[in-house]
Design a protein around this nucleic acid. Sequence first.
DNA 1: GGAGCGCTGTATCTTATGTTACGTATTTTG
DNA 2: CAAAATACGTAACATAAGATACAGCGCTCC
Lengths: 274, 274
Amino acid sequence: MISSIAELISDRIGTMPAGERRAAQTLIANYPLTGLKTVAEFSTAAGVSSPTILRFVARLGFQNYPEFQSALQDELAAQLQSPASRALDPSSPSGAVSPMLEATLDNMRETFRHLSDKQLADIAARLAERRGKTFLIGGRFTDPLARYMAAHLALIQPEVYHLAGQESIWRDRLIDMGKRDVLVIFDIRRYQESLIRFAEKAHQRGVQIILFTDQWLSPIARFARHVIAGRTAVPSAWDSSAALFVVAETLIGAVTRQLEAAGAKRIRDLESLR
Amino acid sequence: MISSIAELISDRIGTMPAGERRAAQTLIANYPLTGLKTVAEFSTAAGVSSPTILRFVARLGFQNYPEFQSALQDELAAQLQSPASRALDPSSPSGAVSPMLEATLDNMRETFRHLSDKQLADIAARLAERRGKTFLIGGRFTDPLARYMAAHLALIQPEVYHLAGQESIWRDRLIDMGKRDVLVIFDIRRYQESLIRFAEKAHQRGVQIILFTDQWLSPIARFARHVIAGRTAVPSAWDSSAALFVVAETLIGAVTRQLEAAGAKRIRDLESLR
DNA sequence: GGAGCGCTGTATCTTATGTTACGTATTTTG
DNA sequence: CAAAATACGTAACATAAGATACAGCGCTCC
């Protein structure tokens, strides 16, 4: 059962030649607006020629371009008149992906339910105040999160370091760390011995630890000043770090906002550079 | 302050002559769809003549009819991209907890709404079939996503490589790539020149490209076999990669499942190792 | 490696859309 | 009540849009 043009497209996109597939992808990317424009605009947006667009709509079963546009408009009209259908579409073709998405969305809501505004603000404040250095590190699968956060933080403030590479390398960086510094650690099951050892030594040196972990709490929680516990369970062979990712993004945003509010010179410099 | 065309109309409808007022009422009645149709259709819908419609849009301050339509489309685009349908959502009394979170959740729903099961299954199948090598790379802020995906994929199948470090390093790896190989690229605004060049050269060598990008589509979409367009807009100084992250996790799960279903020896070996 | 097929873009043509000019009807005002 | 002014529609026009023919190119399959 195919009800919308979007479904029709994703149904047949596999059988399309390269050019028409580009058209399809461009249309899907911001559906359905590109289809309401003229053929010429559509074609340049997709980076193909006009005839390819026309062949594309012909392949979808439309006699001509205006007929295609009318269909899109009708669809849009129905959508606009029942805005409730946008919130939670019960008729959504819940195939194999939906359980995964639903679980992830639930995880995020749960994660934030246990995370107060104040807690987030405190952590952001700690990251925003420039007393010492900021170090970030993660485990086998979570290190990319540490990198992601480091990439952003390093842009808005100095002395942000992501600890990468072999254990021996970052272990030696302990000598740079003191009680004015912050260490952000990502560690979910199965918790990594090397990270635990590292956290303990850092803690002994007075470093303030901010820990991103799962709901079962890494042993590092013992040493952590702040603990963010994210939900990770999804119907998959792997755990999901998505909730932690969103928390990280939220924190990045909060830190940025605080620095902006404080009128940090670096932020202004940054904007003028762009 | 007048922000929408609908406001503009209701502001000036009092000063309009009868015919134009009928046009205005017809447009407001099912806004903004009537305005997206042709002048002729608009005029018959309103029961007036074409010139009346044109005088109507002229009175609103537009130079010509296409300009008027463009304005309507822009408005519609903004409306579709930030679902304000959240206005009456009873499930979140939390209020200020996090507009950031709400926006992120919306982004994910929107992203998956434009992403069919079939599409995801196709991409997963392509990643699961072991014909050639798999390379992953990302941009400044998205490279961590490439790493995250690589960390998982590398575990369940051989010959998965994340391209890291300086441009010159991974550019030279092009010699290893052929038409049996897959290249996964993450690229969101502002799109990186180096990545575009790289994608083009890889494409010329026959490498199949799977692109993760934002809804405005990186230029790399030209060369991509599969395009995943994620929503990235959040109330923050930064764009959000969370939706793309979730898609990546979903894909990782799907690939794993497909390999399991195929009874891949490596998966069994992996489980026995744990 | 060669022949065939299919896809794509350039250029041309045709259609129909938006635009304008003008005459008639209608309302307003002195 | 008359005259002017304004509004509206018909019809002709110009322009830009969609459609088509054709040739070149790349790709696949022998």
